[in-house]
Every structure is written in C-alpha cells, then in structure tokens.
Design a protein around this nucleic acid. Structure first.
Lengths: 212, 212
DNA sequence: ATATAATGTGACCAACAAGTCACTATTCTT
DNA sequence: AAGAATAGTGACTTGTTGGTCACATTATAT
C-alpha cells in the first residue's frame, strides 16, 4: 500500500520509480539495494521516495506485485486456455515467454528470481501465490490431456505435475541463462537452437528418455 | 584461507564455529547474518572470530567450501560409478541423499541453497563448480545408458542431461520442502510416499507422460 | 619459575544507509 | 492574485554492525 501521494503521480513518473527500484533490487538484492540509487535512477530526490512509500520493504513489495500483475495481464491476453494439453501449452507458452523476455528482460528476470525464491522470505507470499496460479492452470491442462488421451492415466495428477514442472522450469532457467549471457539479444541462430531444444524437450516429455 | 590461528584450533572448536556460522547464514542470509550471533552460537567472543578469519566474507566462503567438501567425501564413499545408468543412479542417489538429509539437515539445506543460487554472486564460483561436477557425472551415466541400450540414442547428451536434471532437481526440491515442513523428521508413512513418487518419476523419465 | 608467545575478549570506533524534517517549489482553490 | 494544500528536496540524525585494539588469559619455551 503505497501512500496517497504515489497514487496521484502521473503514470510516467510512477513507472520510472518502480522500474528504477526493480533494476536496483534485481542487480543488488534487497539488502544491498540503496534507496539513494533508486531515487537517482528515477530522477527524483531520496526524500521523495519516502513521500511515496513508508519504507524500503514496502517499496520492494510493491515492485513485486507490480511485476506480477504485469505478467498476469500479459498471460491472460496471450494464452486462452481453450482445450490445449500440456504439450501445446509448453510449446506456445515458451514462445510467448520468449517474446516477453525480449521485450522486458528486466521484468522477466525479476519475476524469475521471485519465483525461484532468491529474495527469500520477503517475497515468499508472492512467490507462493505465483506458484499456485501456475499450478492450477497446469493441473487443468493435465486433466485435459487425460481426457483427450494424450496423457497417461495410470499416474495421479500431482506426480505428473511435478514431472512436468521439473522439465519446463529447467528449460526456462536454461533459456534465461543463455539469454542473459548475450545481454538479452539472442541471434537468430540462438533462437533456432532454443526452438530445437524445446521440440526435443516435448518429445522427451511425451516419450521419455528410455529406448522405445 | 582462514588465518593460522584457526587451523591450529582443535577440531571440535573449528567445527563449532563453522556450524554456528552456517546456521546463521542459512537462517538469515549473508547480509543479515550477524558475526555477534555466530560467535555466541559457537561459544566464543566476537573478537575471536576475527582471529580466525579476515572478515565476514572469508568466513562465509570457508563455510561454503567446508559444506561442499563434506558432501564430496560423503558422495565419493557412497556411490561407486560402476556401470549404473541414469535410472539406477536417480533411485540409489535419492535414497542416499535422503539418508544424508536426515543426518545433516542443516548442511543439506545450506548446500541446496548454494546450488540454487540463493546466495547470489557470493557463492557463484562454488555453485558453478558443484554443477560442473554433477554434470560430468551425469553425462557419463547417460553415455553408459546409451551403450547399455537403456537410453534413446536419437538425442544429444546435452538435451538428455537438461531433461534429466530438470526432473531430478525438482524432485529433490520437493523432498526438501516436505521434509523441512516437518522439521526434518519425516514419518515412515511420508518416507513411503516419497519412495512411491520416486518410482513414478523414474517411470516418467523412462517412458514419458504420453499415452503408451 | 619466569619470560615469551599465542590466543581470547568485549568495549569501542567508524562507516554506511535508512529514514526524518525544516524548508522550498509547485499546483489547486476561490 | 492570495492563500492553502500538496509535492519535492537533501542535509542531517540515528541505529546498526563489521571490524579494531588494548588488555587479560592461557600455553609454550628455557
């Protein structure tokens, strides 16, 4: 809950402040992030930050919800559930997230670190909420798959979910690492490479790594 | 490189200091860990810590290598490579790690956080080294599998590795969470449950989640 | 037993950064 | 245009904690 003053700011300034804050938190972590640096990054005085937020923690928490809401909107727009199964979702979802990554590397990286728990107990609640939403969604896809006959029925949904998440999360992490190492500007060649790995991952998801 | 004084300490005191430090770093993170608290935990004065280590960072780094060396020893003892394939390894490795977890929850949790990058750039080098060792090992198992005919040969090892790691890491993370929530004292019932999930994971690894 | 070296200690110091506040600048109201 | 309200500012205060150091204690050497 930012202060009244913050809400009355014009959108541009609000966004400047938040993005500067996210950049600092992302680069330095919560403890090492300096309010002074955030203020400088946003082009305001340190005192102003305290007109907007009670304290550092509140600012951070607001950044977290801001980033997550941004994604919720984006994801809602892009992926109509329809009657996809897990494989379609992994394929199309990965492409979408990849596009988003090119547009908003900072936000994606920040959200990723929230999700993977790098901010520790501070962002725990948000991170749990994020997991819950994703899980719910994926469980529905698994159920869809079972109905459509593309997912084996001898295992319970929870186990299938764990397996699916393991593979997709690792793939996402790999992408992040690759893309980070080239300053979020992958070449067309690298893009093809990832596409290739993605297809193989889906094949592995479906058929496993055992021989036949 | 701790100071000469530290090396001359008797083993018991050394271990008390390191374990107190790991406990504090684990509970609070690097920035919030207080030297005073570590000293208290180890039953020595704050000044003594500075007889042993140049500064907080050196102490932390030493904790990291200490914990990792502990595991290296443990793992070397337990898992002779022989000619296991990835499935055997996952099964027996999981059991071993589970036993270790019961004995040394603190060290396992600490190492896990190093591996997952929760300590950020501070432990980056150690975490990379840890990954490298694991990877090398797993790549050999994959090669074994291909030779023995238990792993499909149409995909390159790197891709298979990514898939394998995704599944196993997620499984480990799940175990950690479960076990943490009961103060590292799982009931026999919970143990069976994990064993069950483990077997299903192996089935999924081998055959995938596709029908047939 | 005495001298010397090594280790232990906790009050203290210095640095740093979160958060405050007295003042200025701007915007809104009538 | 005057006054009131709101927003902006950065020098200053304050709490915290990593690290020091002068002294106390213990171990080692002769």
């Amino acid at each position: 809950m930012p202060k009244r003053t913050f809400h009355r700011l014009d959108d541009d300034k609000k966004e400047r402040v938040i993005r500067a804050a996210i950049e600092e938190f992302q680069a330095r972590g919560f403890e090492n992030a300096k309010i002074e640096a955030i203020a400088r990054g946003a082009g305001v005085a340190k005192g102003s930050i305290y007109q907007y937020f009670d304290d550092k923690k509140e600012l951070f928490l607001y950044c977290v919800t801001w980033a997550l809401e941004y994604f919720m909107k984006e994801i809602d727009r892009q992926t109509p559930l329809q009657d996809m199964d897990v494989y379609d979702y992994f394929l199309s979802g990965s492409r979408e997230r990849f596009e988003l990554l090119k547009q908003e590397p900072l936000l994606v990286a920040f959200s990723m670190e929230i999700y993977t728990g790098k901010f520790g107990s501070l962002a725990l609640e948000a991170s749990r909420e994020l997991s819950r939403i994703g899980e719910e969604y994926e469980l529905r896809l698994i159920a869809n798959g079972k109905r459509k006959g593309t997912v084996r029925e001898d295992l319970d949904d929870k186990t299938l979910l764990l397996f699916f998440q393991g593979v997709t999360e690792k793939f996402d992490a790999e992408i992040m690492e690759k893309v980070e190492s080239v300053d979020y500007n992958p070449t067309e060649e690298q893009y093809r490479e990832m596409e290739h790995v993605l297809k193989n991952m889906i094949s592995l998801l479906k058929q496993g790594m055992g021989r036949n």
